[in-house]
C-alpha cells in the first residue's frame, strides 16, 4: 500500500512537471472500480480529457471517502484549474469543498449528487434514473400498441435508489395504457444469477411463460440471466417474450446481435464530456451552468448496429 502511494506520488510529481504543456489541469477523484460501468467511466473520462488536451490528474479512492478528501486537498495544493469528484457517499463534503471554494477552484460532481450547500460546487452531472425507466416504458408502449401485454419486472436491489427510480419511471410511462400491466415484480439484486433464477420462477408461475408478453429488467445483467432462463424454458427471448432493460453494457449488444433482446436505455459512462463542456464555458465566458446537468438516456435497439456499439464499448473496460 505504502509503496503504491509512493509510486502514485512520484507519478503525480512527474505529471506536475510536464503539466505546463497543457491548457488546463483537472483533478478527478474517482470512487474506485467496483463495477464494469465505473471502469468504463474512468476510461471515458481519460479519453475525453485527452481529446480536449486537458491534463487529467486521476486519483482512485478505493471506495473510501477519506481518500477522496485527501485527493481533493492534494489537488488544491497543486493548484489545479478544476476538480471533478464522483462522490462515494452523500454527506461529509462541506469542509473540503469550502477549502476548494476559498482557493477559487470550481468543483463538478460526476454521476452522484451530495448533501451540501449548492454554492459549494459548480454543477453536478448525473443521469436521471426515473427518466431511464420512463424511456424503457415508452419504448414498450410504442412497440406493443393496443395489444394486451403482461409484463414481468426484475427489480434492482430492494431499496436502492436506481431500483426505486427505474421502477417509478417505467410505471409512469405505462400508467395511462390499460393494456400494459405488470403482473409480477421481484428483485433480482442487479445480478445475472438472481435474474435467471427469478425469471425461471416467473415462467413457472405464469403458465410456462405463455402469459408473459414482456420483461422489464432494471439492468442488463439481470436481463442477460433472464434471457437464458427464457431459452431453457423453450421460448424465444426477443420474440415470445420482449426484453427491455437499462444500462447498455456490452453483453446486451451481443444479445441484440443474437436477436434475443429488444431494447436497452443507456446509462452513459460519459459524465466527463458534459462536465468539461460546462467547465470550458464557465472558465472562458464566466457562464454559470445549471446546478444539475442531466446526461442523455439514449435508447438502443437491434437497429442501431449492435456489432459496432459492442466493439466500441468492449474497449472501455466494462
Amino acid at each position: 500500500m505504502r509503496t503504491l502511494n509512493l509510486l502514485a506520488a512520484t507519478a503525480f510529481a512527474t505529471a506536475l512537471s510536464i503539466s505546463s504543456a497543457f491548457a488546463l489541469t483537472v483533478g478527478f477523484s474517482q470512487i474506485g472500480s467496483e463495477s464494469g460501468w465505473r471502469a468504463a467511466e474512468t476510461s471515458v473520462t481519460k479519453l475525453e480529457a485527452q481529446k480536449r488536451g486537458i491534463d487529467l490528474k486521476f486519483a482512485d479512492a478505493q471506495q473510501k471517502q477519506e481518500n477522496q478528501i485527501k485527493a481533493v486537498r492534494s489537488f488544491i495544493a497543486q493548484g489545479v484549474d478544476a476538480i471533478f469528484i464522483a462522490p462515494v457517499v452523500a454527506t461529509g463534503w462541506d469542509a473540503v469543498l469550502k477549502e476548494a471554494k476559498e482557493a477559487k477552484i470550481p468543483v463538478i460532481l460526476l454521476d452522484r449528487t451530495i448533501d451540501a450547500p449548492k454554492d459549494l460546487y459548480l454543477t453536478a452531472v448525473t443521469s436521471d434514473t426515473v427518466y431511464e425507466g420512463k424511456v424503457a416504458g415508452e419504448w414498450l408502449v410504442k412497440n406493443v400498441g393496443d395489444k394486451p401485454c403482461n409484463i414481468v419486472e426484475l427489480q434492482g436491489t430492494t431499496g436502492s435508489s436506481p431500483a426505486i427510480n427505474r421502477k417509478k419511471g417505467f410505471d409512469d410511462a405505462i400508467a395511462s395504457h390499460a393494456n400494459l400491466k405488470i403482473i409480477r415484480s421481484q428483485t433480482g439484486d442487479f445480478t445475472r444469477t438472481k435474474g435467471k433464477e427469478v425469471m425461471e420462477s416467473f415462467i413457472k408461475a405464469e403458465g410456462g411463460g405463455k402469459n408473459i408478453c414482456a420483461l422489464y429488467a432494471h439492468n442488463d445483467d439481470m436481463a442477460v440471466g433472464a434471457i437464458q432462463a427464457i431459452k431453457e424454458a423453450g421460448l424465444k427471448p426477443g420474440k415470445d417474450i420482449l426484453v427491455v432493460s437499462v444500462d447498455a453494457v456490452p453483453d446486451i449488444f451481443q444479445a441484440f446481435i443474437a436477436g434475443e433482446a429488444n431494447a436497452t436505455v443507456e446509462l452513459t459512462p460519459n459524465m466527463a464530456g458534459p462536465a468539461f463542456d460546462a467547465l470550458d464555458a464557465y472558465l472562458k465566458d464566466k457562464k454559470e451552468p445549471a446546478k444539475w446537468i442531466q446526461t442523455e438516456s439514449k435508447l438502443y435497439t437491434p437497429a442501431d448496429d449492435p456489432q459496432k456499439v459492442y466493439d466500441e464499448k468492449k474497449g472501455l473496460g466494462y
Binding site: T158, G159, Q186, S201, F202, A205
Partner: peptide, 14 residues
C-alpha cells in the same frame, strides 16, 4: 426461496 419467488409478494417481504 423458490416458494417465496412463486408466491409473488413484493420483494420487500422476501
Amino acid at each position: 426461496n423458490t416458494g417465496i419467488l412463486l408466491a409473488g409478494f413484493p420483494p420487500e417481504f422476501n
